[in-house]
Each structure stands twice: as structure tokens, then as C-alpha cells.
């Protein structure tokens, strides 16, 4: 009897850690907070033994409380890096539905989640090439000409290679965005001096487009409007700080340029 109870308790604990694992993979890859809350709740409620689940998710951490028998278990998970990986969000979403509907054992579930976490998706070179192409077309949307497009494309390739290299050294996002923006504006000025491209400002705007926090500020407002004030505040803060770091980087180089040093 006692053994049985102990086993059930252990199982519930494992269920909780599975839910946290799924939630943290989603949050790390840029899912909205309400979607993470839904997923964690769905996974925890899928097994009948749990009475009560409440989760609280912010972009920097997940808190889940789960009542089982007459005990309450709580789990806190801190999240540090946030990038956007839509493929993983989709896969975890499918997994949580499958897990809730079928009798998949918890161990198998955890193995599957770990497999999803390790998927790398597209090659870095492909990502960089398409990101730069998008940046080039962004300058065209802002009214640049064909030469500006070429310049912006080339500058962005350099910037993205540099920032992905910096990411491997675990450098804080402020520094990497600052360096990326500085390099982008320095190279743009250089290319215009050589004669490739005419409008410095349009090339720079295109080149920093993969860095600027447009999606972050929109998500911040969206979270705030749906009542998740803490998520909204923290995402908004992230957006403001990133924009500030980019402005520092570009502003520094432009200031040196206008003083006539380069």
C-alpha cells in the first residue's frame, strides 16, 4: 500500500518535470506566455490523479504548482535566452496534444521532448543568407535603389555572421547588438565611400532590421492588452534596451564619421 502511494507520488513528480521541460522549450523559442501556460496546464491535467494545477509564466521564468492527494508540489524554472524558433513551438504544441490524448508513458514523453530540443533546423548559412536577403528587400521597401540593395545584402551577411559567432561565446545581448549595429553602420559608410550604394541611411536601416526588436515591442503590447502585465513589461523592457543598444552602436559610428575621422 505504502509502496503504491510512493510510486504514484514519484510519477506525479515526473509528470511535473515533463510539463516544465515542455514549457521551457516553448518559452526559450519565443512562444507567447499564454500558450506556454495552456500547454503546461494541459499536460498536468492529462493524468487523472492531479486535482489542481496553476501555472504562472513570464518571459524570464515558469512557476507551476500542482496539487496531488493532500500535498502541493511547486516547481520554478528560470529561463535566460530567448530566440525565435517557430518549428519547435509547432512541434511541442503537437506533442502536448498527442500526450494529453494518448497513454504515452512519462519516460517516453521526456525522451521525445529531449529529442525535439536537440533538433537544429536549418543550417546557419541558409539562415544567414535568407536573413540578409530579407534585409536587402527591406531597404527596397523603404525606397532604396538596386545598388543600395546589394550593399545592404552584403553588409547584413557580415553582421549576421559576426553576431552568430558572438552568440557562441555567451556574450550578453546588449554587447552583441551594439557590436552588430556598429559594424553595420561602419560597413555601410565604407561601401558608400567606395561607390557601391548611395543612401547610407537606407542601407543601415535594412542592415539592422534582423537586430531591431519590432516583434518584441508588438508582443509586449499584445501581452499587456490581454492582461499579462508582467510579461508585457518585461518584453517591453527587452525591446527598449535592444533598441537602445542598436542606437548606441549606430550613433557612435555616425558621430565619428561626421567629425571627419574616417
Amino acid at each position: 500500500m505504502v509502496d503504491n502511494l510512493e510510486n504514484e507520488k514519484k510519477e506525479t513528480k515526473e509528470l511535473l518535470s515533463l510539463a516544465i521541460l515542455a514549457g521551457s522549450i516553448m518559452l526559450k523559442n519565443g512562444a507567447e506566455t499564454y500558450r506556454v501556460e495552456d500547454t503546461v496546464n494541459r499536460i498536468c491535467k492529462s493524468r487523472k490523479k492531479t486535482k489542481y494545477v496553476e501555472s504562472f509564466v513570464t518571459p524570464t521564468g515558469i512557476f507551476v504548482s500542482l496539487e496531488y492527494g493532500n500535498e502541493i508540489m511547486t516547481y520554478v524554472q528560470r529561463i535566460k535566452t530567448i530566440k525565435i524558433d517557430l518549428n519547435k513551438i509547432d512541434m511541442i504544441n503537437n506533442f502536448s496534444r498527442k500526450f494529453a490524448e494518448s497513454d504515452l508513458s512519462i519516460e517516453e514523453g521526456i525522451n521525445e521532448l529531449k529529442k525535439i530540443d536537440k533538433i537544429t533546423g536549418y543550417e546557419n548559412t541558409i539562415k544567414i543568407l535568407w536573413g540578409s536577403l530579407a534585409a536587402g528587400f527591406f531597404s527596397l521597401l523603404f525606397g532604396a535603389n538596386l545598388w543600395d540593395f546589394m550593399a545592404s545584402f552584403m553588409v547584413t551577411i557580415f553582421v549576421l555572421i559576426f553576431t552568430t559567432k558572438l552568440c557562441k561565446f555567451n556574450i550578453t545581448f546588449f554587447i552583441s547588438n551594439f557590436c552588430g549595429a556598429a559594424i553595420a553602420s561602419a560597413l555601410s559608410i565604407l561601401l558608400v565611400k567606395i561607390g557601391l550604394g548611395e543612401n547610407v541611411d537606407k542601407i543601415i536601416i535594412g542592415a539592422i532590421m534582423p537586430l531591431v526588436p519590432g516583434v518584441a515591442i508588438t508582443n509586449a503590447i499584445r501581452d499587456t492588452m490581454s492582461g499579462d502585465f508582467i510579461s508585457g513589461l518585461s518584453r517591453g523592457m527587452e525591446a527598449i534596451v535592444i533598441a537602445l543598444s542598436i542606437a548606441f552602436g549606430v550613433g557612435l559610428v555616425l558621430k565619428i564619421y561626421f567629425k571627419g575621422v574616417i
Binding site: R35, L86, T218, I240, A247
Partner: peptide, 22 residues
Amino acid sequence: TVFIIPGIVPLVPGSGMYYTML
């Protein structure tokens, strides 16, 4: 989200954020 996040990218005010801070 899979369709909405890339879809809003051209509309999103990234350059506005940058110009404000500049």
C-alpha cells in the same frame, strides 16, 4: 503564431524604435 510572426515583420515598427532611441 507560425504564420503571424513572419507575417507582421514588414509592418512592425523596428525602424521607429531605432530612430526614437537615436
